[in-house]
Simulated assay, not measured.
Amino acid sequence: MSSTETDPPVSSEPDGTDPVSTPLLSAERVGVAFSAGFAPGGTSGTARAVDGVDLHVGRGEIIALVGESGCGKTTLARVLLGLERPTEGRVVFEGDALGYRSRDLKRYRRRVQLVQQDPTGSLNPRRSVYESVAEGLRVHRGTTVDEAERVGEALARAGLRPADRFFARYPHELSGGQRQRVVIAGALVLEPEILVADEPVASLDASVRGEILRLLLELRQELGLSALVATHDLGLAWNIADRVAVMYLGRVVELGSVEEVLSEPAHPYTRALLSVLPDAASEEGPVVLSGEPPDPKRVPGGCRFHPRCPILASGEAERAGVAERCRTEDPLILPGGDERRVACHWAAADAEGRLPAAGP
């Protein structure tokens, strides 16, 4: 669990930043909008894949970014990697705003590395394990005399030992777990400070998932690595994360420590996601949300979750006196930081001030 106090505003100037209190990586009011052709009625549509996200990742911290498919997790991860440029807001690394010139991005990507979801698709079948791991080293630092040593160290840290036995192998000769370890080694060879992992175990067998999650925790302990792990699996978040950010339709709707969010979920959406886990089953059973997530070109007015909200449908929001606000008033964007926060009118009223409401 991170012990950092609530994060102060981050300055983009190198002078005056505090390396202890300044988050390692931040999204500040990040928005990403895509042109989506023509919407009904003949008007041009704009899909807001990410719609104002504040999120900080501290040094040595693991944050789980959870939500349904299509909620914006992958797009936000791409923005944090510098693969996608935000249409609003900015990415800040060590107190400095990310630049998008080629040399700026090249320098940045040595320190912030991606771990992809599908190890089979991300590894070139015609390249040996050695070539796959060494590729990043050659791109970013040129061929060096200690290349074999660096590749061997990365493979060993990723749990492939003795490393030299894997140098000449090809992806088809490895198991799924071994391929994912090669992908992780390819990120580690550059000695990054943070990993951004997009569904890192989704394609793996259940017997292997725990090994990869344990590896990520070991890397944090041994190397001080930070990580942002995008996943739809709250069970994964429980096992690996310090903090959890729950996304819905491009927004973070609940944020807090893993114990706070998963033991006492405040947002109805988080409760619904958690209710389907076997260990979290209640007498009421799983919460079944009605319908599909709305089209990001047509975000509902008021709280964007209200058309599917079981609290509103059951009358609980009406009894709490917030039903009209749910339908008409958009909860403010949650600020980043370590403090527990929820973007929900009903949760704020139900907590009677114990939870900070949305807003600064």
Rank of each mutant, 00 (worst) to 15 (best):
E292M: 11
S207A: 06
S263A: 15
P300G: 01
N239C: 02
L312Y: 14
P200I: 08
V252T: 01
L215H: 03
G210S: 00
L255D: 11
G315F: 08
A206F: 02
E211C: 11
L234H: 00
E316M: 07
C309N: 08
L204T: 06
E259N: 12
P294I: 10
P307V: 09
T270L: 02
R220D: 05
A230S: 07
V246I: 09
V252Q: 06
S226A: 10
D233C: 01
S207K: 05
E199G: 04
L217R: 13
E284Q: 10
I212H: 02
S203E: 04
L289D: 00
V287E: 07
A317C: 11
H267I: 09
V253F: 11
D242G: 03
G250F: 01
A272W: 01
P294Y: 10
P268K: 05
L228S: 10
P200Q: 03
E259V: 04
L204E: 01
G302V: 15
E264A: 14
A281Q: 13
P200Y: 04
V201L: 03
R308Y: 03
L217C: 05
L289F: 14
V261N: 11
P296H: 12
G210H: 09
H306D: 12
I240H: 06
A197Q: 01
G256T: 03
K297L: 09
V201I: 14
D279F: 13
V229W: 01
L236Y: 00
L312M: 13
D295C: 09
A317M: 13
V276R: 04
S275Q: 02
L262M: 02
A237V: 09
Q221N: 12
V288D: 10
V252W: 05
D279W: 12
R308Q: 12
V261E: 06
N239I: 03
A202K: 11
F305Q: 01
R251F: 06
V208G: 02
K297E: 14
I311A: 15
E292I: 14
L236Q: 14
A317H: 07
V276E: 05
L273W: 02
S203I: 05
H267E: 10
S263P: 12
V229C: 06
H232L: 07
P278F: 04
E284L: 13
S207E: 14
R298C: 04
D242V: 04
V246H: 12
S257M: 03
A227I: 02
S226D: 03
G301H: 14
D295S: 15
T231W: 06
G315D: 13
D295T: 13
D295I: 06
P268R: 01
S290A: 15
D279L: 14
G224H: 13
A245R: 05
L217S: 12
L213P: 06
